[in-house]
Design a protein around this nucleic acid. Structure first.
Length: 487
RNA sequence: GUCCCCAUCGUCUAGUCUGGUCCAGGACACCGCCCUUUCACGGCGGCGACAGGGGUUCAAAUCCCCUUGGGGACGCCA
């Protein structure tokens, strides 16, 4: 049995798209689950659309997700890896050209002297007559003399498509049959000698010994061309698996312009890479274990199988992503959660450097159960780092502008002052006793105090938060709130 | 237009290959209730689907055909 070799071959013409991430993930998972190799190949033959910045952005996306490649081009400090390089298609031009010319020698391809203008005209005519455009085959039977007579007129190289049928034995879609009549003699080499995509992928996949081509089903019809090329070039045919693409919430192909098309958008929004991996995998695959939806990368490496892949396209559902993020967030260790949350706080201008690690861990612990994303941490903790000088309007109406408001706060202050220790338990005990004395609801006391200490109606548990805030600061804020209520 | 793919609750799906155990199971969302110091979390319950039409069969979500709907491909882009 030969080695399993998968690849992702994005064209670096933008950021890492969620759809590309999906394909990369399944290739990578398949390789990992089979002990195979995952290769990254950059399809940067279209110089006009390729920029180094895009290469960076794309690789950064893979790295954030934790999809590491076994073979691929150099990136950052990482040198080129693998024995099948180079891994940038633009550096493989000579290879592509040589293979194309071999096809010419073997008469499996021919020179075409039709100009772009002529072809465009033909295409327009076909459109006007409402018939599908196919290349006329004008140059298909040119004799060597006729070719010679063209002198150095520019030419493209066309692949000679033979009659018959091409069948893709797709691992996901099943057998898909195409009548070769659907394909005209397609171009494989441009006049300047650059390869066309179809030629380049096949030569690269063939020469890189790719065993499984897992990609978007937008390539399903292209696959027939590729199979013809594989056969003509004499390469071993890889297995194909064409997966449905990722749709947006309205059911359309997830547009590049849409928020979230860039996987790094989600990182910036406070989602964990674990969440994205888990979510994207759910978009096209289910586990053998019925009903299971929570998976870590390690789980997936072990459980993934191609035969549980879905044939139908799925929409991206933000709500479910949020839920999943919560699941993953809650399973982090406090240390881990703390480390991931700090950068978001710092980015929002909260200076956490003055606080001891111990304190930060306690802060993280009281928020971990509550925040839906890492980014929400700021709203739950900013009052620790900033003075409270405004109170949430709605909450103020409910707790600061009631007949008993003053009494609530005064009682709370008394309890706090008299607390035998500045701890969660001591404070709770004091509040509970005050509730009995005052014959009021604990909520009134707690929420007015919360508003005084944080300025907000929501946040971590009051006694936990008060403990962390410290006695002096808490009492100062109480005094300030009391003054506000009396005014 | 031609060819190709897809089609179960609003969404993601199990079940389809190997018809009966499915008057269709789970999850997210939504709506109630419970827990509760807020917000979350959690627990319990509710709402909610086999696109339509023909076949085949004792029996069809499951097999076949048609229709409809959605997506994709038809480049000297990848």
């Amino acid at each position: 049995m030969s080695e399993i070799r998968c690849r992702i071959a994005p064209s670096p013409s933008g950021f890492l798209h969620i759809g590309t991430a999906k394909m990369a993930l399944f290739n990578w998972l398949f390789a990992r689950s089979q002990g195979g190799v995952f290769v990254l190949r950059l399809e940067d033959t279209d110089a006009e659309r390729t920029e180094e910045a895009y290469v960076e952005a794309m690789c950064a996306g893979f790295q954030w997700l934790g999809i590491e490649w076994d073979e691929g081009p150099p990136f950052g400090d990482v040198p080129e890896k693998g024995a099948y390089g180079p891994y940038r298609q633009s550096q493989r031009r000579d290879l592509h050209r040589a293979e194309a010319l071999r096809l010419l020698d073997e008469e499996k391809a021919y020179r075409c002297f039709c100009t772009k203008e002529e072809l465009d005209a033909e295409r327009e005519r076909a459109a006007a007559e409402k018939r599908p455009y196919r290349y006329s085959g004008k140059c298909r039977h040119l004799t060597p003399e006729e070719v010679a007579a063209k002198g150095d007129a520019p030419w493209t190289l066309r692949f000679r498509v033979s009659e018959g049928e091409t069948v893709i034995e797709d691992l996901v879609q099943g057998p898909v049959r195409f009548n070769n009549r659907e394909y005209d003699d397609f171009i494989i080499l441009k006049p300047n000698g650059d390869p066309i995509f179809h030629l380049a992928v096949v030569v690269d996949d063939g020469l890189m010994n790719i065993s499984h081509v897992i990609r978007g089903d937008d390539h399903l019809t292209n696959a027939a061309r590729h199979v013809m090329l594989f056969n003509a070039l004499g390469y071993a045919l890889p297995k194909f698996a064409h997966l449905p693409m990722v749709l947006d919430e309205t059911g359309k192909k997830y547009s590049k312009r849409l928020h979230g098309a860039n996987v790094l958008d989600w990182r910036d929004e406070g989602y964990l890479p674990e969440t994205l991996i888990n979510y994207v995998v759910m978009l096209g695959w289910t586990s053998e274990e019925e009903g299971r939806e929570f998976f870590t990368l390690e789980d997936l490496k072990r459980l993934f199988t191609l035969d549980r892949l879905n044939k139908s396209p799925a929409r991206f559902d933000r709500k479910k992503l949020d839920w999943l993020n919560g699941q993953h967030l809650r399973r982090l260790t406090v240390e881990d959660f703390c480390d991931r949350v700090l950068p978001f706080m710092n980015a929002e201008g909260l200076d956490t450097t003055a606080k001891p690690r111990e304190w930060l861990l306690r802060m993280a612990a009281i928020c971990q159960e509550k925040v839906p994303t890492l980014k929400h941490i700021t709203a739950y903790t900013d009052f620790f780092f900033r003075d409270v000088d405004t109170y949430d309007e709605k909450a103020a109406g409910k707790f600061f502008r009631q007949p008993d408001s003053e009494k609530w706060l005064e009682t709370a202050v008394r309890v706090m002052e008299e607390a035998p220790a500045w701890t969660h338990d001591a404070l709770k005990e004091g509040f509970d006793r005050a509730v009995e004395e005052l014959q009021t609801k604990l909520g009134n006391l707690v929420n007015s105090t919360r508003l005084a200490l944080t300025g907000k109606p929501v946040g971590p548990g009051l006694f936990e938060l008060a403990e962390l805030l410290g006695r002096d600061e808490a009492l100062a804020r109480m005094a300030k709130a009391l003054a506000f209520v009396r005014a």
